[in-house]
Structure formats: C-alpha cells, structure tokens
Simulated assay, not measured.
Amino acid sequence: MEWAVHSCVNMAWTPAGEAVNSARLAEYYSLPGAYLNKQLQALVRAGILVSVSGPRGGFHLARRPENVTVLDIVLALEGADPVFRCEGIMASVPNADMERNVVRTCLISQTMRQAELAWRQALARQTIAGLADSMDRRFPQDRQKALRYLAVGS
C-alpha cells in the first residue's frame, strides 16, 4: 500500500497526462519492479491509474489527484472486506448463551469494527492532492529530486 500511495503522489507531481515509468519508480524506491507493477495494475483496474504503452509509457493518474483518496488505493489493493472478522468464538465457550447474538454483542468485535470505521473515514478524508501538497510544503526538495530521477517534465 505504501508503495502505491507514494507512486500516486509522484504522479500527482508530474504534468497532467505524462506517464511515469514503473521501472524507474521501482528503482527510485529500491522496490521489486514486478510487485510494484502488479500494484499499479490493480490501480488501473480500479480506475485510479491509466496505463500507457510505448517507449514513453508508464502510468499516470486517471482522475485529478483531489479526486483520489488513500481509501480508494487501499480498497483497490486490499478489497472492501473488513480487516477484522468476528468468528463468534464466544458461542463456543462452555455454557454459552445460545440466544445471544455474539457477533453483535461482543465488545471486542464492536471495538474492532469501530476502529476500522474510523480508519476508513480518516483515509477517505486524505486525498493524493492533499498529501502531495503537504509533502511539497514540508519537503520541497523531495518533489524536485523525484521528478529529476524519474525524468518527468525535463
């Protein structure tokens, strides 16, 4: 996930429609190229990125960066299923109350569902544009370094 979010931030910094080469991205971050490319292809399938073929090919954002949230990326890579799945183990303890809906009444399950909801809401509020702008303000040299290395816009 981290790799995909960083890659999308790099793409937000590039001129609109200009492709970022996935091999250069992988090299820049010292990542395994095949696995990064697999993540980027998942983002293409989710409509977050566009894949461009040819000698100047690569990937670019399919939507404006303010219309791509971190949650969009997480869902594209991990799916929409909840991370925590209550198995209802309280129904298996000796003398369990068989009338009780343990999934709905289990405080551990409720805690985990509330935490996941808060996590998803926080990720939905964070856009790639917001991250790119924040990173550029705090570490302006990072944008220029990335763009020079990726040979985008030069």
Rank of each mutant, 00 (worst) to 15 (best):
E2H: 12
E2S: 13
V5N: 04
H6K: 14
S7R: 01
A12Y: 02
P15L: 07
A16R: 13
G17V: 08
E18P: 06
V20Y: 01
S22N: 07
A23M: 07
R24S: 14
Y28E: 10
Y28S: 08
S30C: 11
S30L: 10
K38L: 12
Q39H: 15
Q39F: 14
Q39I: 07
L43N: 02
G54R: 05
R56Y: 09
G58D: 03
G58V: 02
G58P: 03
L61H: 01
L61C: 03
A62F: 00
A62M: 05
R63Y: 03
R64C: 07
R64A: 15
P65E: 04
N67L: 12
V68A: 05
V68L: 07
V68M: 05
T69H: 00
A76N: 07
L77C: 04
G79N: 06
D81I: 04
P82S: 14
P82T: 09
P82W: 07
R85E: 14
R85M: 07
C86M: 02
I89G: 11
A91Y: 02
V93K: 11
N95D: 15
E99L: 14
N101S: 06
R104H: 07
R104F: 06
R104E: 15
T105P: 01
C106G: 01
L107W: 08
S109A: 15
S109Y: 08
Q110S: 10
Q110H: 07
T111H: 14
M112E: 11
Q114C: 10
Q114N: 14
E116F: 01
L117N: 10
R120T: 05
A122K: 07
A122P: 03
L123S: 06
I128W: 00
I128S: 00
A129F: 08
A129Q: 15
A132W: 01
D133S: 11
M135G: 04
R137M: 11
F139C: 08
P140I: 04
Q144W: 10
A146S: 15
L147K: 02
Y149T: 09
A151Q: 15
G153N: 12
G153Q: 10
S154A: 13
S154C: 08
S154M: 10
